[in-house]
């Protein structure tokens, strides 16, 4: 068991190292950092000094190590475009994205699993079929179109909700939250629906198909043959087995919520890290791109690690590896 956990942690660290390498290579090879940092008026002496300052004259592995060392300490360099330390910008912007992602993630998982179970149990029911058809539209609608549609309806036509920004925010230490003011909460409604809807339909369809698969298994048929109540069969026997594969994909979906936040943030001009990233791409602001990549990979890897450990808690076959008869 300990080896299992250790193995996962090691794997995660390896992934982070690889991502770090990608980020560093971007930093080092995409465009010329010297070009980016010095203006048109520069002397060879300036260039040489900056090269030494940045350590660009050292061998590649040394540079990589230094990059990692700095990254661990939260130093990602200075944004080409804004001329401020990247870490500072990220800290300022992270709360907006995290709040948005948390709210929509919660919506997506709770509603998605609920509807998935419902549509699987009532496989041929009218309402279940309706939900399935509507969900396919949900999968086919690009996130940005959902956002535009919602803005048009609730902001332009009805004028109920704001179409951009976070509203009023309260500062608690360095964390800025929009959850404590009514304008902040109002501003959160449309973006979180936009961001959560696509993930919700995906989770729902996945839960449904996994559950239908489980309902076909012999042990479910045997549970029925023992006369157990339909509810017991569905929830005690089928649902738990459904959740094993669902957890992995849901973990991945949570990761993609953070990525899809880029789109939602662009549509709603939400001042989070996603908007920062898309601007960085347009202006080839490499330090910001690299830092964003590192930051969200830490999140993804973290989520995946939690998912693996959850697996462990749910599935006894993993816990007792090696013991007992096979």
């Amino acid at each position: 068991m300990l080896t299992y956990v250790l193995k996962r942690v090691l794997q995660s660290a390896l992934v982070l190292l690889v991502v770090g390498l990608v980020a560093f290579s971007m930093f080092r090879f995409v465009g010329d950092p010297i070009d980016n940092m010095l203006g048109q008026e520069r002397t060879d002496a300036d260039i040489a000094r900056l090269r030494a300052d940045l350590g660009l004259d050292q061998p590649f592995p040394v540079q990589y190590y230094k990059f990692l060392e700095k990254a661990v300490q939260g130093d990602f360099g200075v944004s080409f475009r804004q001329g401020r330390p990247v870490a500072e910008i990220l800290v300022e912007r992270a709360p907006a994205t995290l709040e948005l992602a948390a709210v929509s993630g919660f919506l997506a998982i709770s509603i998605g699993i609920g509807l998935g179970v419902f549509t699987a149990i009532r496989k041929d029911g009218f309402l279940a079929n309706m939900i399935m058809s509507v969900s396919l539209i949900g999968v086919s609608l690009p996130t940005f179109l959902i956002g535009i549609l919602l803005i048009y309806l609730f902001s332009v036509e009805l004028g109920w909700l704001p179409s951009f920004g976070r509203g009023e925010v309260t500062h608690i230490g360095w964390w800025s939250t929009g959850l404590l003011t009514s304008s902040g909460l109002k501003a959160l409604i449309l973006p979180s629906i936009t961001l959560g809807l696509y993930q919700m339909t995906l989770i729902m369809r996945l839960v449904r198909s996994e559950m239908l698969e489980v309902l076909r298994q012999d042990y479910v048929r045997f549970a029925r043959a023992r006369g157990l109540k339909e509810r017991t069969v569905n929830f005690r026997h089928a649902l738990k087995n459904t959740l094993v594969p669902v957890i992995t994909v849901t973990g991945l979906q949570l990761g993609s919520i953070i990525a899809f936040a880029i789109i939602t943030e662009t549509v709603f001009q939400w001042p989070g890290v996603g908007l920062l990233f898309i601007n960085a791409i347009q202006f080839v602001d490499i330090p910001v791109m690299a830092a964003y990549l590192m930051l969200i990979s830490v999140m993804f890897v973290g989520i995946n690690l939690i998912v693996d450990l959850l697996y462990f808690a749910i599935d006894p076959r993993l816990r007792t590896d090696g013991k007992g008869a096979h």
């Binding site: 298994q217 012999d218 042990y219 045997f222 005690r236 026997h237 087995n241 599935d315 076959r317």
Partner: peptide, 13 residues
């Protein structure tokens, strides 16, 4: 049932 390997729920004791 025929197959004892699939007749029991793997997640319950």
């Amino acid at each position: 049932f025929q197959d004892p390997l699939t007749s029991l729920n793997p997640l319950l004791t």
